[in-house]
Amino acid sequence: MNIRVIGAIVVLCLVWGSLWGLVKHSLQIFPPFLFISLRLILAGLTLMIVQRILRKSILPAKGEWKKLIISSLMICIGFYATQTFAMQFVDSGLSAVLVFTMPIFIGVLAHFILKERLNTQKMIGLVLGTLGLIAILWPQLHHIHLNLSLMGQIILILSGLFWALTTVNIKQNFASYDKIKLTIWQLLIGGCVLFSGALIFEPIDVQVWITLLNDSILLYIAVVGTGFAFALWNWIVSQVDTFVASISIMCIPLLSLFFGYVLWHEPMTLNILVGAAFICSGIVASSLNIKMKKKTIIPLPCK
């Protein structure tokens, strides 16, 4: 792994690690669904410009639209919209940890849908991930009563599940598809659906949208945190083994906890630290591909 790849991984982890706090901050300024829809649309348009610079096709073929719409609704409404809604009630660092249970869910889904065997490493990952979720939710489970914080945490876990479902869907239906073009239409279709609904149900305060600082944060989240980061991630995957790339970004939930604690003064309780450690260990364990060496039996010569 050369210095350029290492540098790109560091930049990506810092961008995505710090993004959760900025999103949480933005939800205190912007209406949630107007914010997420504009983020998706701006990111999609950014990738469209990148695709144009690369001189690659942008418009899908006629028969591809149905699958693209289904995939877009899964990622934009099932993942982004639920995540954005839930983050109004949960700290940014904890949100990242709960959403990053996605690789653990993939282990189970791939076993039943993609017929990829649920091996020992994935089973260990599922157990560790479950223990992590129990540790994080323990204060609410110990004195169980429905509140906005618990509801937000459960929705964030479901958001991770939808992310996993979308990933499996992409592997099923878009294995050889241009990934930048796929993401362009995933973001634009779902973003426009959410934008239409937001215009109907959410208030529009013009003063909020014409503030330079607010617009700068939105542009950073959309263009850098979504569009640029996605392009950078694609480049990293093209340079190194996919497994190495996946493991290299597993520090993002921990970085999110760190940034949330230092920059946004979010509490760092013992149960969150223990739960985060279990979940990150579970993600790494479920991603490992350890091959057991079979003992070779050398036959004895016949007498």
Rank of each mutant, 00 (worst) to 15 (best):
I155T: 14
V11H: 02
H143V: 03
L218S: 06
V262H: 12
P103I: 08
L232T: 07
Y80N: 04
V127Y: 10
L188V: 11
G107R: 11
L156I: 01
M151D: 08
P299D: 07
M123A: 11
L146V: 15
T166D: 11
M1H: 15
Y177S: 08
G93S: 06
R39P: 07
F89Y: 13
I134Q: 07
G21Q: 08
V223M: 02
A81K: 08
M48D: 08
I170E: 09
L109N: 12
I144V: 05
F162N: 15
M48T: 14
S238T: 15
I221F: 02
T166C: 05
A81M: 13
L114V: 07
G129W: 07
F258R: 08
L187G: 01
L232C: 07
Q140T: 11
S72V: 15
H265D: 14
S287C: 07
I77H: 10
A96Y: 05
L14D: 01
R39D: 04
F195W: 10
S238W: 08
I77M: 05
K62S: 07
A245W: 03
G21M: 03
L47S: 11
G44H: 01
K294S: 05
L42N: 00
I41M: 04
Y177Q: 02
G7W: 00
E116V: 07
Q207K: 00
H142S: 15
L255R: 10
L12M: 01
S176Y: 13
T269A: 11
A164N: 09
S256E: 03
L126K: 05
N2M: 06
